[in-house]
Design a protein around this nucleic acid. Structure first.
Lengths: 246, 246
DNA sequence: CGTTTCGATATGTATATACATAATCGTCAT
DNA sequence: ATGACGATTATGTATATACATATCGAAACG
């Protein structure tokens, strides 16, 4: 069985998809090392018995995914794995808790509407003064505190939030779907619990905690800033990733 | 000026790119809410004065990026923001340190070649027994310890590592480029420093630390398991992201 | 009234073609 | 040698076309 025969053997999806996964595998398996010149579009179109356009579409996608680099007149080359970018999935806390098989409970601890202080504006990266809603909430797994939430909502961007008490629904799920976000930033770090957090999470002051802060923008306007604090034992963030997907 | 005129007004890149960013913006800005039916390929091809193929290429990409959902006969619809996936960039420690304007220093603390213990096999998710290389290294920013590295390398997957002392080069940079990885997993959590880590990082035992663990596979074979421990003050992980990029 | 069939429609995939653009190579004149 | 220049080549982008496929809706039928 010749090389060409192997390649053109029957496969599941579309041709375009097959070319994509074939080459993707060659690269991630190491068969084609970084720097290796992959066959020209013309050669591949002969190998796969299809038109150059089909090959082009597949290679363009691989280039966009960052697996290969294309140079006019020279050909396409396997890129060396450059920035290690991981896809970090941050789920809804309710779903996290329920995935552990524990009953989830939500509790609003504090709700305060006020004109933004200088600190608020720094948190939200807000230019002008304006009303904000400050919230503090507890998330429980069974009897135990799971996470403590401290949130600021920019009422200029989300005026409807002023009328919501957040007694029955947590601000996270409330905001999702209501406010289209265009950008977000996470900061993840370890801190020692201060007395306030220690009391909320029922741990000792000074105990290590994982803090996840998220700022969200919608079309250039800051929407919300939230800080989740987890007791060290209760939580691990997991990020699984591949250099690219076919 | 008619709608069509506005849309076809001169723009930077290719038409295909313009269609992509136009629609992407409409969605992320909220102008087209989740569930909204975007114009048919045919309508867009008239609006942008181009062929259906060009529109199709753009829409296919948006669908692949997860911004829209396409249904035969019915049209294409804006998807609601589903999983919050953040791109977490994990840089080389040297680069992180130098970005702070501090001199970087690397030090190998321990190097030990051995048959894998049960614990090693658990760390690497290794099925069979085989030789591993255990390393411990310090990364310094100026005079201060910045991160402590504890690493296992699967010598079955990377036999060349057995001959490397890792005195001058850190295992991370050494492995990158030499071993094509196909998959990796990060675990991020907060811990209290034990005495060993406390001594290495020059902090007090029990002080909070950020731990980033990474496991890497290459074509189904475990390659390495590494644990970086940072003193809480010294490090924050940042992940910035958008729902999708044009 | 319910079911089946069939046509219309929108997307999915692939083709041949055309011209633009960038980079490299060889040739020729200096 | 060296530099200018044009030919060649591979990719980049767009077009018109064709047929496949899924699905909605309406008409035909038992």
């Amino acid at each position: 069985m010749s090389m060409a025969d192997t390649v053109v053997a029957e496969g599941g999806g579309s041709l375009h998809q097959r070319i994509l996964t074939d080459i993707s595998e060659k690269i991630t398996s190491g068969a084609w090392a970084p720097g290796h010149r992959i066959p020209f579009e013309h050669e591949l179109s002969v190998q796969y018995n299809c038109s150059r356009m089909t090959v082009n579409k597949a290679l363009s996608q691989l280039a966009k995914a960052g697996l290969i680099e294309r140079r006019r007149r020279s050909g396409s080359f396997v890129r060396r794995p450059q920035s290690q970018a991981a896809v970090l999935e941050i789920h809804d806390i309710r779903i996290e808790v329920e995935a552990l098989g524990l009953p989830y409970r939500y509790e609003r601890v504090m709700r305060h509407k006020r004109r933004s202080s200088a600190g608020d504006r720094a948190s939200l990266e807000l230019g002008l003064a304006g009303p904000v809603l400050a919230l503090e909430c507890g998330h429980f797994a069974g009897e135990r505190p799971f996470a403590h939430e401290q949130r600021l909502i920019n009422l200029t961007a989300v005026p409807e939030a002023a009328d919501e008490e957040f007694l029955a629904i947590a601000p996270g799920p409330w905001l999702i779907g209501r406010v289209p976000w265009s950008e977000a930033e996470h900061r993840i770090r370890a801190v020692a619990a201060d007395r306030h957090i220690a009391a909320a999470l029922d741990i000792e002051a000074g105990a290590p905690c994982l803090v996840v802060e998220r700022r969200t923008w919608s079309a250039e306007h800051p929407v919300t800033h939230v800080r989740f604090t987890y007791a060290a034992e209760s939580h691990t963030l997991v990020a699984r990733f591949r250099p690219s997907q076919g």
